[in-house]
């Protein structure tokens, strides 16, 4: 059941055109989920794969996602790559500079938990130590399909969040979504 069907339910035909009737909450959730601009920054090897996801073959713009250079205009932060101890404060600051509502995707083993550098003293063991992470994407580096799956799951979550708000339920606790290895998802 996509946005399309829900919109069709609210479409009323009048002579000479159509009127769209929908609940504000639905439209809000729809707008938020279909226009997630992400912050331009890449930290290491995973960033290359993130760029590949945005470029010709996989094309993130299909989902309305493109990269904005300034945190003030971004909605999603894709942390792609390992975070050194010196880098961490800057990532935190960038996160704080983003306007609400904002989401974080930890891409790859390093951003999720330290990855191959787990034993290094200079690498932070996962960005979730200082910013709340919504989606963890498996891989070293994750395949573009995996990252896209993570983005789609995040879109679903954004929609659900607002539906819960609309029905007067408490906002669901933001439990992280974990995207497993490609192929294992079924």
């Amino acid at each position: 059941m996509g946005v399309k069907e829900r919109l069709e339910k609210g479409l009323i035909k009048v002579p000479g055109g159509t009127i769209l009737i929908a609940k504000m909450a639905d439209i809000m959730a729809w707008a938020r989920k279909s226009s997630m601009w992400s912050l331009t920054f890449g930290l290491s090897c995973c960033a290359i794969e993130m760029m590949a996801t945005a470029a010709s073959r996989y094309d993130l713009d299909r989902f309305g996602m493109f990269f904005r250079a300034t945190p003030r205009q971004a909605d999603v932060m894709i942390v792609a790559g390992w975070v050194s101890v010196k880098m961490a404060p800057f990532i935190k600051r960038l996160y704080e500079q983003m306007p609400e509502p904002k989401y974080v995707i930890a891409m790859g083993g390093c951003a999720s938990a330290g990855g191959p550098y787990r034993d290094s003293i200079t690498i932070v063991k996962g960005v979730d130590q200082f910013v709340p992470v919504d989606v963890y994407v498996y891989g070293c580096p994750p395949r573009p399909e995996n990252l896209i799956l993570g983005i789609l799951k995040l879109q679903e979550r954004i929609r659900r969040e607002h539906l819960a708000e609309k029905n007067g339920l408490p906002k669901p606790v933001r439990e992280p979504i974990i995207i497993p290895e490609a192929g294992a998802t079924g």
Binding site: A31, R32, D59
Partner: peptide
């Protein structure tokens, strides 16, 4: 050689509408 907006509305035609709405709803810093 990409496709551009595709999934929001037919052939992405509602993409900019969604963008505008979202910008309306964002925090104003």
């Amino acid at each position: 050689s990409r496709l551009g907006p595709l999934h929001v509305g037919p052939h992405g035609t509602l993409q900019t509408v969604a963008d505008a709405l979202k910008l309306l709803l964002k925090e104003d810093i």
